[in-house]
């Protein structure tokens, strides 16, 4: 009896210790990802420093699944820049190019019109009803860098959640079973 009890105890103690280590290392992975994201937010000044291109409206420059790095500086917005903007009443931000800029003399406010490189007409049809121009507060950032294909990971994961769960499960299993 004593022998069995001893073994059970040792197994139990090992498991608790191991479980704690694994919990901590899992926590480290999650928090370091969060730290990197928040640090990028601080450096770029944009609330979402990286965006995934979802539509083909900027083809052939940006295709679906490419990712863009954003930067939001105090610099005024000028024609030709590729900006990411939110339209009132729309959830998903849009990545398009600025084609017209009117900057007010007294207040410095800007009126901006955008267009997708691959679209036939400008974006007035996408804006809220009756809206002719974008203002500064609609704009979340301007694209400064580009990386192809990487965004497919997130597109696949949002469209096929089952893959996300399989991936998270596999990673979790890997963390739990690894002993080093």
């Amino acid at each position: 009896m004593g022998w069995i009890g001893d073994t059970a105890d040792s197994i139990k103690s090992i498991q608790i210790r191991q479980l704690l280590t694994q919990g901590v290392s899992l926590g480290m992975i999650v928090t370091s990802a969060l730290i990197i994201w928040k640090a990028l937010m601080c450096i770029t000044g944009s609330e979402s420093p990286v965006v995934v291109v979802l539509s083909g409206s900027m083809e052939p420059g940006f295709k679906r699944g490419d990712i863009l790095f954003l930067h939001m500086s105090k610099d005024p917005i000028r024609a030709g820049e590729i900006v990411v903007f939110n339209v009132d009443g729309r959830e998903i931000p849009i990545v398009h190019r600025v084609i017209k800029v009117h900057e007010r003399q007294d207040t410095g406010e800007v009126d901006v019109l955008t267009k997708g490189d691959n679209n036939y007409g400008d974006d007035r049809l996408l804006y809220a009803q009756g809206q002719l121009w974008l203002q500064r507060h609609h704009i979340m950032g301007r694209a400064v860098g580009f990386l192809p294909y990487v965004g497919w990971v997130t597109i696949i994961m949002t469209e096929k959640p089952i893959i996300k769960y399989i991936l998270i499960g596999a990673l979790g299993l890997l963390v739990i079973t690894s002993k080093d």
């Binding site: 052939p60 000028r78 030709g80 084609i99 017209k100 009117h102 900057e103 007010r104 410095g108 490189d117």
Partner: peptide, 27 residues
Amino acid sequence: KQIFIFVAAEYETPQNSLNQVSLWDAI
């Protein structure tokens, strides 16, 4: 990968310190 070019008319008016109006573009 590609170069996007456009021609813009740029001018100043009493209300606006800068007006940029894209007239033509090409890839």
